[in-house]
């Protein structure tokens, strides 16, 4: 069965250029196509007409690399829950439906071109403290530190984050709280993550604020948009860690952190 969609796509030639919506007719599609394969088809036709194809980020196309991410009819990653754009299929749409496609919109995610945005702010949040400082070599045997299965499972739930930025895109405040909190929960739930736990949360939260993400108002749009369905419970955990570190933590001594 072939399908037909009416697209309205955000086109913006460059970071400083003005953008606008452009309508494209997309006939002869298959319901078994993925959303990105539909865009491939549209792009092939555009190139054949000598026009610039619609730029969008994508890579693995199996929902794990976190490259893709589009606002589809007002919903981050489109209508299917727990699914990244690349794993969304056209069977989630009606024949003849209008589909509005926009980039993630946030001050911290400036548009690079069309639907491509710059999400490097997320990398800088991780660089601020989203790690365990374990130099290569010189670590104990893997079974020397036991981790209760429940803790390992909860850590894995949080670690499933693919860094796509849908949480920021779906949040009316453009907050990156779910992203930062997922990493803080992942590392904070493990015994290996304890020594740096206070420093980690303070630094990551401070970086998140510096990147011009908005604040969390606990409304839960992020967990609904998350392709890995990470729960906002991790945000409560981040707040708790932050509060504890702020009230009880010692001031970082200048030069004592070692890891810059």
């Amino acid at each position: 069965m072939t399908m037909h969609l009416k697209l309205r796509v955000w086109r913006q030639p460059g970071p400083t250029a003005a953008g606008r919506f452009v309508a494209y007719d997309a006939p002869d599609l298959s319901a078994d196509m993925s959303f990105l394969e539909m865009l491939d088809v549209v792009n092939e036709r555009l190139i054949e007409q000598g026009e610039a194809p619609i730029a969008f980020d994508h890579d693995c196309r199996e929902g794990i690399c976190g490259s893709c991410g589009l606002m589809i009819n007002g919903v981050a990653h489109g209508p299917m829950r727990g699914t990244a754009t690349c794993q969304l299929h056209l069977r989630s749409f009606r024949d003849g439906q209008e589909v509005v496609i926009e980039p993630w919109r946030a001050k911290a995610f400036p548009v690079v071109r069309d639907l491509v945005v710059d999400r490097s702010g997320l990398d800088r949040i991780i660089a601020a403290g989203g790690y365990i400082s374990a130099r290569t070599g010189g670590v104990p045997d893997a079974n020397a530190v036991l981790v209760a299965k429940d803790d390992a499972d909860s850590a894995m739930d949080a670690a499933a984050c693919i860094g796509c930025g849908a949480c920021v895109a779906a949040c009316p405040n453009a907050s990156a709280s779910l992203f930062a909190a997922a990493k803080i929960a992942h590392l904070g739930l493990l015994p290996q993550g304890q020594p740096e736990r206070a420093k980690r949360v303070l630094r990551m939260v401070s970086q998140m604020d510096m990147e011009a993400f908005g604040n969390c108002t606990n409304i839960g749009e992020c967990q609904e948009a998350c392709p890995k369905l990470i729960s906002i419970d991790v945000i409560a955990r981040m707040n708790r860690d932050f509060l504890r570190a702020s009230l009880l933590g010692r001031e970082e001594r200048v030069g004592s952190s070692g890891e810059g």
Partner: peptide
């Protein structure tokens, strides 16, 4: 004010999914 500044361009279409 911060939150407003964090999204300078509004979505043309935004459909809340979870928030009350």
């Amino acid at each position: 004010v911060l939150a407003r500044a964090a999204r300078p361009t509004a979505y043309q279409r935004f459909v809340p999914q979870a928030s009350s």
